[in-house]
Amino acid sequence: MDDARGRERVVVHPAIVRLTHWINAAAIVMMVMSGWQIYDASPLLPFTFPGWAVLGGWLGGGIAWHLAAMWLLVGNGLLYVVYGVASRHFAHAFLPLTPRGVWRDLRRALTFQLPHKAGRYNAVQRLLYVVVLLLGIAAVLSGLGLWKPVQLSWIGAPIGGYPTLRWVHFFAMTGIVGFVAIHLLLVALVPRTLPAMITGRARIPATETGA
């Protein structure tokens, strides 16, 4: 569909991707902040998260939030993954993913020569989205292992059990928070990506179509 200025509006984010994206955003905020509350009860490293950054008011509240929001995170995540595989959204959006392509686009990005093409991820984006998906799976699996170290002992058994799972869970969280920071920075640099994640549609300059 062409608008008055000779640009095309196309659907770049399917409705299910948009829906699961925003539910996931809310769930991640709840999981991370309540997780930090739980962390503060027995810190792994010599620091704690400040009161304004944690959710739940005390350890019992943090756990209540964490173990309630986990259903939202996992249910929504399953919907996204099943859709991504069944509709071939993952294959279309994340592949091909090659070291050569990532290196090429990373160099372009760092020299500000990487064009943003609505509806098509560059190789660095693809790598980041795949990595954060894997980090999410690691966070959920290690979380299940921490929640049920006896009934689901097979999760932790190969890597040293409960104490190792705590570190895996912590580092998965750190990676996800790092991703969110980069993600938000890039949205700030290319603000027109934000409305596209809400309406699903982006205006693509005629010169870019078919590229």
Binding site: G57, W58, G61, A64, A68, W71
Partner: peptide, 20 residues
């Protein structure tokens, strides 16, 4: 005390957390 937030309807949040 579950929600830890002072929302106007904090009781609703607490009720949900307790039900969960």
């Amino acid at each position: 005390m579950l929600s830890g937030c002072n929302l106007a309807d904090g009781d609703t949040v607490d009720r949900i957390l307790l039900a969960m």
